[in-house]
Design a protein around this nucleic acid. Structure first.
Lengths: 223, 223
DNA sequence: AATAGAATTTAGTTAAGACTAATTTTAATG
DNA sequence: CATTAAAATTAGTCTTAACTAAATTCTATT
């Protein structure tokens, strides 16, 4: 719809800004630059262009960061829908593991037509989660909201089922698979280390310890 | 392999030049410009760059057109393999008709990894023909050579089976489907018009007439 | 309130890859 | 073999999206 004339680069900026503004109200130039692997000065230039676009895709005020406009959010969600549908398709139909899907989907997301998006969605039965448990925006671009707990918030004795791993790092994902921490895995918190926030977990019959850098990014359904 | 650093645009030039040099020894600037939908001056610039590349992708002499080097042909065949595998995949697994596959594959061909190429090929059983009957280069980039006849060369009374339609025009392809002229269709030449080269054909129980502009691009196995 | 240091923006450059207009080369014809 | 039309090339411009270096603005702290 709103997505003609947009370059891959623009789509990437919007996607990154969308992700950054989930946590904070506005995204800063330096944050964006770091995520995109680009110099801050390049980001400033792009922010100006996108906020001067008709319709504006960003609300930008010098020195105070940016937020998406409705039009910008629309585009970002469209790309995220492409990305997550592709990830799931690669996983379900072409034998990709959850650590391999991200990189491939990152390139494909910009070039598939709406028609292909739709056929993939149909083929997969209009799924709601990608292989990492991330929610897939619907055709109307609404996002199902989950009320899952951060694994890092659990207390000793609680049991839970893994629902989402919000990190695309292939090495981490491979490691998690190797210890049995995959979607729908059942786990129990044995102990919470007071000072470093480490969690001692039982997964299957394996005991292991995970630090907060990791447990912050894992979401679970508490039983 | 040789395909790092190459932009989509470069890949498109090489593909077009490959196709043009199937018919003639060398491709001319204007031919390339027309196929690419680009001004001739733009082509000259690109030809210079690609022939100055290390390794050179083109043999280019001012005013006498270009041919691919071995390296250039390698790249072109790699892209064509992507394109045709994607066309077949879209057709077989995602419900695309033969007139819809080309446009989508034209964008996807530049971004799929070698890993995805390989999985698609495996999933399809290392196929040798795309939905139009065009040969798919093998993993080693060799092309199966067929000894099919041009439909335009047949004489009255001959019977044949359609093997290839070397034209991507969606309107033509839809028309051909509508008259039953699809891959593996059986047909008989009833009559050849002497002056205009029109062919009167029997396909199924339908009689129809096709001009040489079309019958030149259809290849058949004579029975 | 002054100021150091961090964050951001400005200014100016670069490379691709397109364009147009003008020029040059080649090929065909009388 | 001179002329001309077609084909190709050159020259110069534009846009996108990056870069570096320099300048500016903000923020936190004394």
């Amino acid at each position: 719809m709103t997505r003609e004339n947009l370059t891959q680069s623009i789509e990437d900026y919007l996607k990154v800004i969308y992700e950054l503004t989930l946590a904070e109200e506005r995204a800063t130039t330096n944050e964006i630059a770091e995520r995109m692997g680009v110099a801050p000065a390049s980001v400033t230039g792009m922010l100006k262009r996108l906020s001067a676009n008709e319709p504006p895709l960003l609300k930008y005020e010098k020195h105070r960061g940016v937020a998406l406009t409705a039009a910008g959010r629309q585009v970002a969600l469209e790309i995220i829908r492409h990305h997550r549908l592709l990830e799931l398709y690669l996983h379900e139909r072409l034998g990709y593991s959850w650590d391999e899907v991200h990189e491939e989907a990152d390139r494909l997301e910009h070039v598939i037509s709406e028609a292909l998006e739709e056929r993939i969605a149909q083929e997969l039965g209009n799924p709601l989660q990608d292989p990492h448990g991330d929610p897939i925006p619907t055709r109307e671009l609404s996002l199902p909201v989950h009320h899952w707990a951060q694994l890092s918030d659990l207390c000793a004795g609680q049991k839970a089922i893994v629902q989402q791993v919000a990190n695309e790092n292939p090495d981490l994902l491979r490691y998690l698979s190797s210890i049995g921490l995959v979607l729908q895995a059942r786990l129990e918190v044995l102990e919470v280390s007071e000072f470093d926030g480490n969690l001692h977990l039982l997964i299957g019959d394996r005991r292991l310890v995970l630090g907060p850098a990791v447990t912050h990014q894992i979401f679970v359904e508490v039983l």
